[in-house]
Design a protein around this nucleic acid. Structure first.
Length: 299
DNA sequence: CCACAGGACGGCT
DNA sequence: AGCCGTCCTGTG
């Protein structure tokens, strides 16, 4: 059968989709339900449907074959290769982290198929501003409603989907108009952040130049962006991998399993930086998924 | 009806 | 610098 190649992957083009062979270290549930993204929904056959940039797609994993419906070989090069972080050797990351301790071994054993998605910066930023003091089902709902109201309509498999709204669109909307999406007190942050980004009041190119702490401080200039939101945005849009986003679950798992006592956020940050160093972001992801799914530290 | 779950922010020390 | 009350919404 005819196939094309890109960076070591064989890609088969089929009717309205592509198949990528030999995708290792990947599990759709682990990846889509580990708290890093909000726009993928699980279908009854185990596949996931979601909107990325201006495309709605369905993704299915059959063994090591990744099947993307509504994608072409060019889309793979432009988007999907980076989005699914397919250039990274997660086996090696897991090997290194597993050598650290028994806790990491357990967490990795539990979430072995997590890949950190390289998501759109703007969507990630706004999604995690919405995530502040909020729960995942509510975050999903708000992001969905904002897309429906302010995004562009797109079609896939006879259904209508909506792209995530642009900077300009969110900047021109009044707070009252944003409020109907269920963002609550976060809507004024969304509005002000959108205006600051639109007006170029923040130099986003700095994020790629500065180190972790510098990038974090830069993002924290935006309203609604504190340490946790900044770290999540940097990690899930693939800008920095040595951050360690510390929410209540990560705090709980660190206190319960590493510190065996209460620990401050700064203390946890320092530990993660020293102990996991450049792999902190990956360690955090395995720990978060392990802690939340198993409700570690809640009793 | 109330208690609770979630981070950022601003005022206080 | 660290502590704490407040912000909004849905669920048990």
């Amino acid at each position: 059968m005819e196939y094309k190649e890109y960076k070591g992957y064989r890609i088969f083009e089929k009717e309205n989709g592509i198949i990528i062979e030999n995708v290792k270290d990947f599990n759709l549930v682990h990846t889509f339900e580990c708290g890093q993204c909000f726009r993928w929904t699980r279908e009854s056959n185990g596949s996931f449907t979601g909107v990325v940039r201006d495309k709605a797609v369905n993704v299915l994993l059959e063994g090591e074959n990744l099947i993307i419906e509504n994608a072409t070989f060019n889309d793979f090069i432009d988007l999907w290769y980076d989005y699914f972080d397919l250039g990274r050797d997660y086996s090696e990351i897991k090997r290194v982290l597993s050598r650290k301790d028994e806790i990491m071994r357990k967490a990795i054993d539990f979430g072995y198929g997590i890949r950190i998605l390289r998501q759109d910066f703007w969507e990630t930023l706004i999604s995690f501003i919405i995530s502040a003091n909020n729960r995942i089902p509510m975050i999903k709902k708000t992001v969905e409603q904002m897309s429906r109201k302010f995004g562009k309509e797109i079609e896939f498999n006879g259904k209508t989907y909506y792209t995530f709204p642009s900077v300009e669109k969110l900047a021109e909307e009044c707070i009252e108009s944003l409020q109907v999406c269920g963002g609550g007190f976060r809507c004024k942050y969304i509005s002000e952040t959108a205006k600051m980004v639109r007006n170029g009041e923040i130099d986003l190119s700095l994020l790629y130049v500065l180190d972790r702490n510098g990038a974090r401080k830069t993002l924290e200039k935006l309203p609604g962006v504190g340490p946790k939101v900044a770290d999540c945005t940097l990690l899930y849009s693939g800008i920095k991998y040595d951050v360690f986003p510390t929410d209540v679950w990560v705090k709980r798992v660190m206190e319960e399993l590493y510190f065996h006592r209460t620990a401050s956020l700064t203390e946890i940050q320092k530990f993660a930086s020293d102990y996991f160093s450049e792999l902190a972001g990956f360690a955090q992801q395995y720990l978060f998924y392990y802690a939340r799914e198993n409700r570690i530290g809640t009793n």
